[in-house]
Design a protein around this nucleic acid. Structure first.
Lengths: 281, 281
DNA sequence: AATATACATGACAAAAATTAATGAGATTCA
DNA sequence: TGAATCTCATTAATTTTTGTCATGTATATT
């Protein structure tokens, strides 16, 4: 079944206000309506979100966690819908995979801006699947070819990943084979899928729980440099660190999670985008 | 009125599948139901999202923009709800304002990790209002005191902002007074509110449109260093750059947007959090 | 104690979403 | 060419969801 987005939104407001009454006023509903929404949501989720302490409402630990995480995406949606559509015809919106922005896009983009000062650019982080682009937009990320779409895909970087760590960590924890890696501190972003995959390619199975979780590649890389453990990084994004020795490759085995591409609607639809893509490739 | 979150979710699926039929199957609904949802949504938003080209559905430019931006928060919600609640009793979740992570939190945290290797930490980006914490969580950000809550707030950094630019930009565009700043390229993150505020404090009004928009402080700072214009930065986060001269302050006038705090549920509720906070302050 | 506050509950009503039936264009292909 | 098919639109009926009202319970205030 689909997630009850409206009820989840109500729930996050209730946690914010710590009051059904206040939330009801805010939404122009009765207390009863809000109470019912919460009860229904609790039933669907299978755990309780609030309990009563006196006539005060208290949030359960699970409720706190949920609301804390839910507030970001709901605020995000509200922001998107309230955003003015200030699309000057010269404006290009560039949706880019977060990990690529810092280590690949930004240096190039700034050089580009210096040479083409008239371009108006909006840069947005974007991780999920390609979706659909208009003629003022450009996407950069790792996406498989959607055979049925009319989009132009240009490869910009290899997506091959290798395990790396800092020299300090290397000295502490000697790694001679892929198998030895199973004994190290495996760092990863929001999913350890990459590691499972990599070990599977070596005929090994990862079943140890991993310790530190980082929300994005930037945090992950910083932690690796600081000798927290071993991370699986796209080789193309850590060239500098491998050269300078801040990071050391622990294996020559690469797992290929696909490459990075620039995706645009149509090469000839928008000359500004055309120019930008030519520059970036 | 409240945003129709469910319809928005349906809409983003329709764009993803480029088909009412496919979306209907996915949601276990009839085509008709999906069609109605979209029509209602279009009526509410006041603009059309699709048009028919042959028997194929095409997305309007506004629809494309909307769906592109909507996919991230909806994916986020789905991820939150599918996440296992793997809260070991030793795990601390640290919710931090994105701008603080790189320039303030991470260096300290990594030192902390080195000294306390047994701590299990999950770090998450979090921008919005404080909401409610459980005893395994810690928030770091700029939040006003909520007088009625039982939370402990410890100030960690000043939030005062000043206008800065790179030396190269400084040479190009001479700035002698606050008023001169109105003629420069004003860089900002997702809102130009900060600038309006700063100019208002100097008795000036900003009505020029701003050019380049960055989604977060990290992008903003990089662009400023690359001589794209003038940015309003929290002084505490660019100390190093001011010292080294990569960034130069263009005024001594500061606008105070509040300070940065560590917020925890209760100083004595969780000794691990206690230790961590003591270390960070 | 009396009164007010905050939430819960159940029966019912209102509103909203979904379906079913039908239709209109567009494509496919025999 | 024209019959079959495909995709979405539309209308009216129906079902489901959501909200309201009346009432109840526990807690706090005076």
């Amino acid at each position: 079944m689909r997630h009850p987005y409206t009820a989840l939104h109500t729930f996050h407001l209730v946690v914010r206000f710590q009051s059904l009454k206040h939330t009801a006023d805010h939404l122009h509903l009765t207390e009863s309506a809000v109470s019912h929404q919460i009860k229904r949501l609790e039933a669907q989720l299978g755990y309780s979100l609030f309990y009563k302490s006196g006539r005060q409402l208290k949030t359960t630990p699970e409720g706190k966690r949920l609301s804390l995480e839910l507030s970001a995406p709901f605020d995000h949606i509200d922001q998107i819908l309230s955003e003015p559509k200030n699309t000057t015809h010269n404006t290009i919106t560039l949706y880019c995979l977060p990990s690529l922005i810092e280590f690949w896009l930004l240096p190039r983009l700034l050089k580009f801006k210096a040479e083409h000062p008239n371009y108006e650019l909006i840069i947005k982080y974007h991780s999920s699947s390609p979706d659909y682009l208009d003629e003022h937009s450009l996407r950069i990320g790792s996406h498989e070819q959607e055979s049925h779409t009319p989009y132009i895909r240009s490869k910009i970087l290899s997506g091959e990943t290798i395990p790396v760590c800092s020299p300090i960590y290397m000295n502490r924890q000697h790694v001679f084979s892929s198998k030895d890696l199973l004994e190290t501190d495996l760092l990863h972003d929001h999913t350890e899928e990459g590691w499972r995959n990599w070990f599977a390619l070596q005929g090994l199975t990862l079943n140890k729980p991993t310790q530190l979780v980082y929300e994005d590649f930037h945090l992950l890389k910083m932690a690796t440099i600081a000798a927290q453990g071993v991370a699986l990084c796209p080789e193309a994004l850590i060239q500098e660190d491998l050269k300078s020795g801040t990071l050391i490759a622990l294996s020559t085995k690469r797992s290929n999670i696909g490459h990075y591409y620039a995706i645009e609607q149509n090469k000839y639809a928008h000359t500004n985008i055309n120019t930008l893509v030519e520059y970036l490739i």
